[in-house]
Amino acid sequence: MAITMTDAAADRVRHFLSNRGKGIGLRVGVKTTGCSGLAYVLEFVDELNPDDEVFDQQGIKLIVDGKSLVYIDGTQLDFTREGLNEGFKFNNPNVNGECGCGESFTV
């Protein structure tokens, strides 16, 4: 079981964490909401929860709660540009269907 990151994503996460000046890592996960079931969570982490699993990736702590992990296991986090917009993207092998915009998904 693992979550990975591309180099581009790792660079940006490192930059944003140092800019923020605090935080132990990056939370990746899912929550139930949205137009087709589940939505991704991407947050700074200041404190660990008891059911969190920590993956050390390129010197960055990726933190996933146990419940989320089953939905996103094997996911690779990427950072990309689309036109002027830029941001993180989940390449999740578990996804069966997405809503039109891809912000929420089903497994």
Partner: peptide, 17 residues
């Protein structure tokens, strides 16, 4: 899919919001 930004702890927004 839509591109995401890192939110503050607990501040992740719902899709389309």
């Amino acid at each position: 899919m839509a591109l995401l930004q890192i939110a503050e702890p607990g501040q992740s927004s719902a899709p389309h919001q």
